[in-house]
Design a protein around this nucleic acid. Sequence first.
DNA 1: TTGAAAGCGTTACCAA
DNA 2: TTGGTAACGCTTTCAA
Lengths: 342, 342
Amino acid sequence: MVEGATQSGMRANIKDVSSAAGVSIKTVSRVINNERYVRPATRARVEAAMAALGFRPSAAARALAGGRAFQIALMCSNPGPYYLHGLIAGLRGRCATERVQLVVHAYERDADEPGADVRSLLRQMNPDGVVLTPPIADDLAVLDALERAGTPHVRISPGVAADRTPAVAIDNEAAARDMTQALIELGHRRIGFVVGHRAYGVSSHRLAGYLDALRAAGIALDLDLVQQGAFDVPSGRAAGERLLALAEPPTAIFASSDDMAAGVLAAANRAGVAVPGRLSVAGFDDTPLAEALWPPLSTVRQPIPELAAQAADLLFTHAAPGLRIIPHRLVMRESSAACPAA
Amino acid sequence: MVEGATQSGMRANIKDVSSAAGVSIKTVSRVINNERYVRPATRARVEAAMAALGFRPSAAARALAGGRAFQIALMCSNPGPYYLHGLIAGLRGRCATERVQLVVHAYERDADEPGADVRSLLRQMNPDGVVLTPPIADDLAVLDALERAGTPHVRISPGVAADRTPAVAIDNEAAARDMTQALIELGHRRIGFVVGHRAYGVSSHRLAGYLDALRAAGIALDLDLVQQGAFDVPSGRAAGERLLALAEPPTAIFASSDDMAAGVLAAANRAGVAVPGRLSVAGFDDTPLAEALWPPLSTVRQPIPELAAQAADLLFTHAAPGLRIIPHRLVMRESSAACPAA
DNA sequence: TTGAAAGCGTTACCAA
DNA sequence: TTGGTAACGCTTTCAA
């Protein structure tokens, strides 16, 4: 029994299958990869042998020989729960049909040079595709490396050079403008704004939309009403506390992410400010939070799973560069409908 | 220039490095793997060559030759946002220090045989370790396969055979008992319970804790108060609606996950039932929801990131089988403190 | 439609 | 402390 390892313990390999089926290993390979030019009868015989031996081709060997990793990488940094979940949910369907695994690489956003870490990973694993989220989506060195390596890549919510690669996003500026305008139409004049993390392009896009809507409505800008956040609950809470402590506090606060909006609600709760009643709160993102919260939160709905699914599609179809805009929509709720200032 | 590919485009390989450094490839391999028996001077020379060439060892080749994949797999099914996020957050630190990537495999819980999918993946990628979450954590066929392959694996919240592998969990039964008892001490007598997804062992553990506390308090069991859920918001909402529609509705509802609790809140909101006031709501899990929700939700705090971090530790230290209990704690809030029935 | 043999880029065994 | 050289399990090129 020098032959293969048809016995119990060891994994069967392609050679075991080939001898069991009485064909060459190349033919087995053809069956594995669903190539043409295999007689149905031969194919059936090979498949039977594979099943009998419980054979699964080694991903490592295929990767080495074939140059395909059978994996794509999702690069993200400190993602919030709903964001991360939405991304993975949006990607997994396509990954399954393409028979590719998903490697989630959470790089350290505040590292010296986050791009270096990501580039290093890319050279080692040489993935079949990469999905980039902010802020690494805007790292030119990473994009260069990907291009040189010929690795397909897609960016979600790019902040710069949107035409350089395939990309998907909502129109963040328009979305923030819409929400701000909706709050204004409800009668609000003093609207606080919580800015997202500095490293993200979308943060300034959203701020721009807010400023734009104020300007259009002829409302003078009060910079005290604009507070820095970092896309997470604690920073939103801190920003909310600063806003509520103002001599003339806002009647509405628009936090440019739902996590920050949740923080604002917590701050209001803590300060004994009634929501709704004395304060309206609006957020930004696609989370069940808005659904679950009571009082409800108005929110800009950004369908992350759809963005991710579209990104997967662009990746596997080797789509042309260019930004695809996914529609957003406003979800206005009672908290804003009952304007404290009105 | 037959030699290697020191030129621009192509990736440098171990051979390029060895000739650049004037050593054998085996020595380069030693440096890569941080083995002993390399003179510091030699090591330095090799490292310089690697840096100059921008060399990164191919993960595929290392995997094939070395039998290590440099990846671990996280197996989970339809995880909620906070759960998924907590798992990944808890695992990533250790993955980074161990220089291992994380493959997230979301299998289909309701597939014909979810275990088959998972087993197939395992044979193909042959990971260095596997973290299993319910319900696949209780799939004996998967555990057998893992054992045969000699792949280290850790289970989170196992439902059966807890001593068979290294595992981590909170004491779900005790936790549910504690929460139920706390509600009883607040004066509640009619306490609704929303059961988790059927396929999860923890669902029955939590139900057992609830029943236990009722029995200890001498409260007769009313099965109308026990409603099936599925660990998500919609099912919680539906269960909440059924409970609130009872002729004699409960004064408190303990949903055995926070997502379901959020659904209960939504149901109460919809039905015009004041929380707190006419209803207290308690949940189960570690989410900022409890923090953000207003009215606040009492909750059993299950620190998922800590469970995951502990799991990673067990994985990489090849720990002995056995269940490690992580302490839970109750977070009681106003909604329960103000007992409607009192 | 099938097969033989040459890689792919490492690690591992055994010598030196 | 170092270096040959055979695996590792597959894909691919070229013949047949």
